[in-house]
Write a protein that binds this DNA or RNA. Structure first.
Lengths: 240, 240
DNA sequence: CGCGAAAAATGACGATCATCAACATTCGGC
DNA sequence: GCCGAATGTTGATGATCGTCATTTTTCGCG
């Protein structure tokens, strides 16, 4: 676990160049660099906790970060998975309140942080940075409404299929026989926390999918013979 | 139904002054005013349709607008209700693609629109306008994640209770005996489309709530003897 | 006021789910 | 490699839900 100082240069960060930060010029990056720190996280370690005061904006450099929220009743939901290039904590930064969700490393991860004070100064000077965050917030809202739509329109089974398809897009690879192979990056409990059900139900839906020949599960490995069939099986859902 | 021209002045629009547009100065409003049009909608009329090209950004002046999304399978979800001061269509505006959801008037409504071209020019000139949309997008994302959390963490019953509480906050009024009275602004079918279930189920949950003494339903009227009891009844939910 | 369409309520039934419990498997750390 | 904890699987059972069908009520419009 290391904290970096002012020597970190975002311009050389390939992750940043392909992310929402694309379009930021060198002077602006240099200004941000003054408030930049970097830290490595072990599996399960917390980047920030729901209720913490905002300390700036985080940018995932490596690994995977789970964004969770616990409501007043103690119920927890896994809202999304963040990957390299994704920025975290920008909402509480702009709204000026404490973090509304927690960020937890799933496996080893590296996350940079731009200090709140530095970012405030940079934003006041750079219109490009402002546009950058409009874009970030818009695509985040888009993503949230997409997920919400699925949550409202699909059954548990459909939602699990959708999550499997999404995970395959990011974590899957092709087997020699044309199947898609997927190593699940999260536990079944977390899968359940994503789609709003229990881990037992996830197990049972998986068993159903296996019986239907849509997917084969073995521990964390998933084999999907025909991804299009899995997609098609979601379409026979609620038709309100 | 009328289309207004350049004579509309946002500075005098009380709705705008209390909304996300607060903080915009007169020159900027005057610039926006050149591309402004206003239109009245009857109940059920469509402001824009999912798939339509973006024609600018809409601002609700009066009435209530339902934002719906239909996914590839034909399943429809009611994502949110927009009220005076809310801006619509800003996401597809900034992402530069077609509308990802439809907007439909629930009852008579008045909606203004800033033409795409005008807004593009105004944004290029006004940093304040940019900040304005950061704020808009952030609070929209916040709202979406809040709704998503409820959708994931609560049962149908809990979600209906939550929606009733939310609607009471906006549409409710106090009866002489201290109860909250609420005139439902939407049908039970739409309530079902908000929480992700069927209208029959909504009917039955309402019957259950009535039996438990938490609420009494008579057509569109809802009497809630003790709002805090309704809130409390949500907390005995999933505890993952 | 009356008509027709939409909305809502109710019943029946099979499917799905949450919960509790028991047991098997996997994983991380020593 | 071993051990304990976490994770995953499976079974049983009652509750909830989706679907279809039927009836009642409400609402908009002439």
């Amino acid at each position: 676990m290391s904290k970096g100082g002012a020597h970190i240069d975002c311009c050389e960060c390939l992750v940043a160049s392909r992310s929402v930060w694309a379009g930021i010029d060198r002077p602006c990056f240099e200004m941000l660099g003054k408030g930049l720190s970097r830290r490595e996280y072990g599996s399960g370690q917390v980047v920030f906790l729901q209720g913490d005061p905002n300390a700036g904006i985080y940018c995932v450099r490596a690994g995977m970060i789970a964004i969770r929220r616990t409501d007043a009743n103690g119920n927890s939901a896994l809202l999304k998975l963040a990957y390299p290039g994704d920025t975290l904590g920008y909402r509480s930064f702009f709204e000026g309140n404490e973090h509304r969700s927690s960020a937890e490393a799933i496996g080893p991860a590296v996350v940079c942080r731009v200090a709140r004070r530095t970012l405030l100064a940079a934003i006041a000077e750079s219109p490009a940075l402002n546009r950058c965050f409009v874009s970030r917030a818009v695509s985040d809202a888009e993503n949230a409404y997409n997920t919400l739509t699925r949550q409202v329109a699909l059954s548990n089974r459909g939602r699990l299929c959708q999550v499997l398809v999404d995970l395959t897009a990011r974590h899957g690879y092709r087997d020699d026989d044309g199947s898609d192979l997927l190593h699940l990056p999260i536990t079944r409990r977390d899968l359940a926390a994503m789609i709003g059900t229990r881990h037992e139900t996830v197990s049972r839906i998986m068993a159903r999918l296996e019986k239907e020949g849509l997917a084969a599960f073995s521990g964390r490995m998933v084999r999907i013979p025909r991804l299009d069939a899995l997609v098609a099986s979601m379409e026979a859902e609620l038709n309100g």
